[in-house]
Computed example of a mutant assay.
Amino acid sequence: MTEDSGLSAEFSRARELVMALTLREDFAVREIPAPSGLAPEALALAGDVRPEDDGESLYGTGRLVLLYDPDVPDGWDSPWRIVCFAQAPLETEIGVDPLLAEVAWSWLTDALASHHAPYRAASGTATKTLSRGFGTLAEEGDGAQIELRASWSPTENIAGHVAAWAELVCMLAGLPPGSERIAVFGARKVERD
């Protein structure tokens, strides 16, 4: 344990690397309280794609928790574990695509590969939701959303894993790498078909 922070040297180094990351300027990341009881040491981040002045995003949002347990819990296959969530509203035509869940998962694995972030023991779910408003919500019409929940055990390059998560959230929001300065017309969360 390091004397000044109460954190292990391994976790302190990883935390410093993560906190020093420079991500795309239209993805706002902040530290949030980490859940307790999952591991002896944890860091939690929240990220929003192109947030409004009130901090809310019309495009997409995500959460990431970096866990460290030197006792290597069953199923982790590493002292490190990442748990992430990413969600974005979609245009209804995209939400009905039968391959959407597979595509969302491939965006995660592709992002990890592109950031040289090797891992083991990956698991997760991709959920697509279609909705229709009724009664006083009938004016909202149809809507769709994609949500990915995943966990995996990084084997090296913790900062690369966090950068891959940021890329995933932006991809789900319809903003691929290199689209930082491209205008997005019509916030999908508000407008429904």
Results as ranks from 00 to 15, higher is better:
169 V>Q: 00
119 Y>K: 00
113 A>C: 02
185 F>D: 11
114 S>K: 02
132 R>W: 05
152 W>P: 01
182 I>E: 15
140 E>C: 00
190 V>A: 07
136 T>M: 03
152 W>Q: 01
123 S>W: 00
125 T>K: 10
123 S>K: 02
115 H>P: 02
108 L>H: 04
136 T>H: 12
107 W>D: 10
192 R>V: 14
116 H>W: 08
138 A>R: 15
117 A>V: 09
126 A>I: 09
111 A>Q: 09
132 R>T: 13
173 A>F: 02
126 A>T: 14
163 A>F: 08
102 E>V: 04
110 D>S: 12
137 L>K: 14
109 T>M: 00
111 A>L: 03
168 L>H: 00
118 P>I: 10
106 S>N: 12
148 L>H: 02
149 R>W: 05
118 P>Y: 06
190 V>T: 13
178 G>F: 11
189 K>I: 01
173 A>E: 04
164 A>G: 04
173 A>H: 04
98 P>L: 02
178 G>D: 05
109 T>P: 06
180 E>F: 02
182 I>M: 09
154 P>C: 03
184 V>Y: 01
100 L>D: 11
115 H>C: 11
118 P>S: 05
106 S>Y: 07
159 A>M: 04
178 G>V: 08
184 V>K: 00
109 T>F: 02
96 V>Y: 07
122 A>C: 03
192 R>I: 12
189 K>E: 12
166 A>P: 03
133 G>H: 12
136 T>P: 11
142 D>V: 13
102 E>H: 10
145 Q>T: 15
172 L>E: 09
120 R>Q: 11
122 A>Y: 03
153 S>Q: 00
173 A>T: 08
117 A>S: 15
101 A>W: 06
141 G>F: 03
112 L>I: 07
150 A>K: 01
142 D>L: 15
157 N>D: 14
180 E>M: 03
180 E>T: 15
153 S>P: 03
107 W>L: 11
109 T>I: 06
126 A>R: 09
182 I>Q: 14
105 W>L: 07
104 A>P: 09
148 L>I: 13
106 S>Q: 13
